[in-house]
Nucleic acid binder design. Sequence first.
DNA 1: ATTTCTAATTAGAATTATTCCAATTATCAC
DNA 2: GTGATAATTGGAATAATTCTAATTAGAAAT
Lengths: 140, 140
Amino acid sequence: MSLTSHDALTQKLAGSGLRNTPQREVVYAALLARRDHPTADEVYARVRPELPGISLATVYNCLETLVQCELVRAVNFERGPTRYCPNLHPHAHFHDNASGATYDIDLPADVLARVKAILPSGYEVEDVEISFRGKTLAPR
Amino acid sequence: MSLTSHDALTQKLAGSGLRNTPQREVVYAALLARRDHPTADEVYARVRPELPGISLATVYNCLETLVQCELVRAVNFERGPTRYCPNLHPHAHFHDNASGATYDIDLPADVLARVKAILPSGYEVEDVEISFRGKTLAPR
DNA sequence: ATTTCTAATTAGAATTATTCCAATTATCAC
DNA sequence: GTGATAATTGGAATAATTCTAATTAGAAAT
C-alpha cells in the first residue's frame, strides 16, 4: 500500500476512534490492488499469503470497519455474497449474468439528482444504490 | 383472490407451460392482499391458515415461480431476506432504517431512461434496480 | 519499564435464509 | 382409468455471515 493510502486509512480510522492494524492494512490494500469487487472469501484468500495468521472473521470485521468509516462500499446483488468496492465516486453497478463479473458505472451528478428527486417529501434519503443486470458484448 | 387475478395467474402460468395450483393461488393472493413486501417466512405464516398443509419449501417454490412468470418482483436489500412485491409498474424501493419497512416509489419513464443512459455502449441491460435507504418523517 | 485498560483478533460454534433431494401426490392427455 | 409429468412435501444440506468467549496487542498512565 502506498504511503498516502496508508495514511488515509490511519486517518479515517482515527476519525472514528479506531486503530490501524496490520489486518486492516492488508485488507484495504487488497481491495485497492484489484478492484474486481471481491467477496469476503476472496479477500481472505488474497491476504493470507501476506498475513498467514489472519482469520476469516477478522476479514469480515475489517471489511465492515472499512465500510463504516466510508473507505469502502459494500455491494449486494440479489442473493449473492456481499462484494466490496473501494471506489468512492458516485457510481452504479452492472452485473454480467454470464460471467458474474461486476463493473462500476460512473453516475453523473445530474442523473443522481434526478433519481433522488423521485422521492416524495417526507422521505429522507441517506443512500442510493443503482444496479443493472444484463450482458456485456465486448470484453471489458 | 378476485376472479380476474385468478385468471391472470392461471393465464400467466399457462404462458410458461406451468399449472395453476391451490398453493400458487394462495401465495399470490397473500401478496396482493397486503403489499408490504413480506419475506418468504411471512408469506408462509399468512397462507397457513388458508392452506394448513403447505410447506415452506413450497412457498419458496411458488414465489420463485411467480417471479419467473413476471407477476411478482423479488426485492433484496443489503443482506436481508428476499422480499416479494406484486407491483409491476416501474418503481424503486425505499427502506426505512428505523422500522425496516419497504415502500414503493413510482419511477417515471423519463428518469428510468436517464438512468439507463449512463451505460456505455456494449452493456445490454435486462433489469434495473434502484433502492434508497433512509428515514421517513411521517407515518406512511 | 510496568501496569492497566480497552480494542482487536482469533477459532470455532451458531444462525439464517435458502436450496436440494428423494419420496409422495396431483393433474393432464390419451 | 392409465401412464407420464408436474408439483408438493419434509427434512437434510448448504452458504454466508454473525456471534461468543478467550487471547493478544497497543496506548496511556504510572
